[in-house]
Design a protein around this nucleic acid. Sequence first.
DNA 1: GCTTTAAGTTAGACGTAACTAACTATGTAA
DNA 2: TTACATAGTTAGTTACGTCTAACTTAAAGC
Lengths: 171, 171
Amino acid sequence: MSKSNPGPDALTMSSEDYLETIMLLDETHDVVRVKDVAQKMGVKRPSVVSAIKSLGKKGLAVHEHYGFIKLTSEGMRIAERVYANHKLLYAFFTQVLGVNHEIADRDACMVEHNISEETRQKLIKFIEFVNKHPDKEAPWLLNFRHYAKTGKVRLCSPMDTADAGKDDNST
Amino acid sequence: MSKSNPGPDALTMSSEDYLETIMLLDETHDVVRVKDVAQKMGVKRPSVVSAIKSLGKKGLAVHEHYGFIKLTSEGMRIAERVYANHKLLYAFFTQVLGVNHEIADRDACMVEHNISEETRQKLIKFIEFVNKHPDKEAPWLLNFRHYAKTGKVRLCSPMDTADAGKDDNST
DNA sequence: GCTTTAAGTTAGACGTAACTAACTATGTAA
DNA sequence: TTACATAGTTAGTTACGTCTAACTTAAAGC
């Protein structure tokens, strides 16, 4: 509802997307070029050029004329933060909610830029909590899946939560 | 990552925010005026005028010169959908993750416009599932809260999940 | 009824982010 | 070495969403 409050030097979602894309391309390509970024992001080459010019002014990327694209360490830091959010959200949507992979990816793309630190931390804890169970499928999570599918709450055995004690957080 | 794909006549987040704000103001005020919307959204009056002009062209709002602002039934339908998303996300952030109220509200604002239908449906189920427990605090949820706070998984009594059977979905 | 004030409007500007069209550089193949 | 295809760039346009400054209307008080 109320106006979102990006700090004075906050990046736009678009800029963050460019950083993220460049970082990921850098992992799979020898060098990152304008056309690679354009193709991956589904935009035209001039859009990439102007976006990277803007990132350059902010000290987040370097790009010699007719040369390759590199991120500065600061640019890399931001790209990694955004991508970490992406992975976190993707994990929640797929592992917990059971959302289809492509849709989970799209939804993660949307949220990754703006999620608050508090919600982010809580989601991290939530995913950790879910994964604390040895078989990766906590009883209550199985119950949720069943409920989501059938609308009916399943009776479970009294043993269902006992395995919480088996984990590694006691020392 | 990839370009989001709003349909040809999809509204912008901004337009949806205006619709939502107008709907909410309509519930508490006799009439909705430009300055009310401006105040609530933290924008200046000319921004409201131009936004509403745009909504008018799309058949979502009506606004006589120097008069009051009303939503059409179609505008109301969209406003309600966005607000429903908002409430859903807010409930998840606060009830499940235990996020602070103001932050939950901000995060909900960000996501409410673009969440996919699939994720939305799953979140609805998730909230329903959480609230199926008579005392509104499922054992696993209490365990999660404890884990989020302390980083330690709590041992629980074997009885903890048995109350799932007490609910109303068996027939 | 006039005046003042508050609310609404218009015009013009700016920044972002995309696009097309047209131009330039690079590098490979003949 | 020249020619061509590919890649990168520039210039100019469009749309959106905001703003400020200045103007207009409406309504309330005197």
